[in-house]
Design a protein around this nucleic acid. Structure first.
Length: 271
DNA sequence: CCATCATCCTGCCGGC
DNA sequence: TGCCGGCAGGATGATG
């Protein structure tokens, strides 16, 4: 499941590999994923990659002029950077050929999307405009987080996953952040103390930052643009460890359903 | 306004 | 062994 750290890892790889590359052609094996449609890519031919960025879990490729390509990997999407003319990979849905390289969008579950838009409207077109703050952005700090979450009702995890509050947190890092903070994911948000809000904020940053440092969590589908696994899955305390012993206290970790998502936590370490 | 549900999809897992 | 039903899950849109 690509979340902020996984997308950030891919963005950094693409930024160093693709700046200056000239777009040549789109090959689509799954047209439904492409907005507004295949013919829109005719205008992109000959444009060069100016920079690669990220907003939440969206990957953004800026071209010279005013063209912007936005990608969202959703559940199972994967980017593979390769040379030209290679055989279609398993689950390869769309392929963007550049002069020297080929960016291939693989996605078993077909939930991923690609948008081509202009600098003036790419945020509205893709849904980026509905996102909340970047967790590593300048405007957020413990006070901002406390004010933002202090107004919210419902489970802590539900609000962590709400992209319109803080952008980029998904199931893995939400569970890990709750563990770091010693807070149960199902806790009513408004019941958190001031101290707990600060702990949770710091835990979110810690979980995400650790994910970035380790080049992402490779569980099921995620690999970087060169097909290599991340290392963060070796450092997870709770995600995917339901029924196993807590690394902190040896208690058997509980598996639950919170905000409609599979959730794991420690009954002893998290209150 | 809020919460819940269906939708999109396929791989995988458990049951028989 | 092999088939099949059911389920997970990010985001959105419909429904209650």
């Amino acid at each position: 499941m690509p979340e902020l750290p996984e997308v950030e890892t891919i963005v950094r790889d693409l930024q160093s590999a693709m700046v200056g590359e000239k777009f040549v052609n789109l090959t689509s094996f799954f047209e439904k994923a492409v907005y507004p449609g295949l013919s829109a890519f005719d205008d992109l031919v000959g444009k060069r990659v100016e920079s690669v960025g990220r907003r939440g879990k969206f990957l953004i490729i800026f071209f010279d002029g005013d063209d912007v390509l936005v990608l969202h990997l959703r559940m199972s999407g994967r980017i593979v950077l390769s040379s030209h003319g290679e055989a279609q990979l398993p689950h390869e849905r769309n392929r963007l050929d550049f002069e020297k390289s080929s960016l291939r969008f693989c996605d078993p579950r077909k939930f991923g999307r690609i948008w081509l838009a202009k600098i003036s409207d790419y945020e509205a077109v893709s849904g980026i405009s509905r996102l909340g703050v970047e967790p590593f952005g300048d405007e957020i700090d413990a006070k901002y987080f406390t004010d933002l979450f202090g107004k919210k009702r419902g489970a802590v995890k539900k609000n962590l996953l709400d992209q319109s509050l803080i952008a980029g947190i998904g199931n893995i890092y939400a569970d890990e952040a709750c563990f770091y903070a010693g807070i149960r994911p199902e806790r009513e948000t408004s019941s958190l103390s001031r101290r707990e809000f600060v702990l949770l904020f710091e835990a979110v940053l810690k979980a995400l930052n650790q994910g970035i440092i380790n080049r992402g969590t490779s569980i099921s589908d995620y690999h970087d643009a060169y097909g290599k696994s991340g290392k963060n899955q070796e450092l997870l305390y709770v995600y995917g460890r339901g029924g196993k012993e807590c690394i902190g206290c040896k208690e058997i970790l509980v598996k639950a359903k919170v905000a409609g998502r599979g959730t794991v936590y420690c009954r002893k370490c998290q209150r």
